[in-house]
């Protein structure tokens, strides 16, 4: 994606950097253990693939597709979920 390409050198990509329809592999959840546990139960397990579907009206929360299901979370949470560096 040409828009986010440069800024990604500066920081590690998170779920927020995905464009609608784009898919990536999850790397790490930098969140408190309890929240990470719940996210993993919902499918956000490091190594699995995730794609950004769309956001609610107004841009937040955002809907992500993991393991065949749509899960909604706020951008604030999404910004702590890191992705493996994409090509």
């Amino acid at each position: 994606m040409q828009i986010s390409g440069n800024s990604q050198l500066a920081h590690r990509a998170t779920l927020l950097d995905l464009a609608p329809g784009e898919e990536a592999t999850l790397a790490e959840l930098s969140l408190p253990e309890e929240i990470a546990h719940r996210l993993m139960i919902l499918g956000f397990v490091p190594g699995s693939s995730v794609s950004y579907t769309r956001s609610a009206p107004g841009g937040d929360p955002r809907v992500y597709r993991v393991d065949g299901a749509d899960v909604a979370l706020r951008g604030e949470t999404a910004s702590h979920i890191h992705l493996e560096r994409r090509m």
């Binding site: 309890e34 929240i35 719940r38 996210l39 919902l42 929360p61 809907v63 299901a69 749509d70 899960v71 909604a72 979370l73 706020r74 604030e76 949470t77």
Partner: peptide, 8 residues
């Protein structure tokens, strides 16, 4: 607060 998580 705990974050909002909802499976649709």
């Amino acid at each position: 607060g705990t974050p909002f998580l909802l499976e649709l």
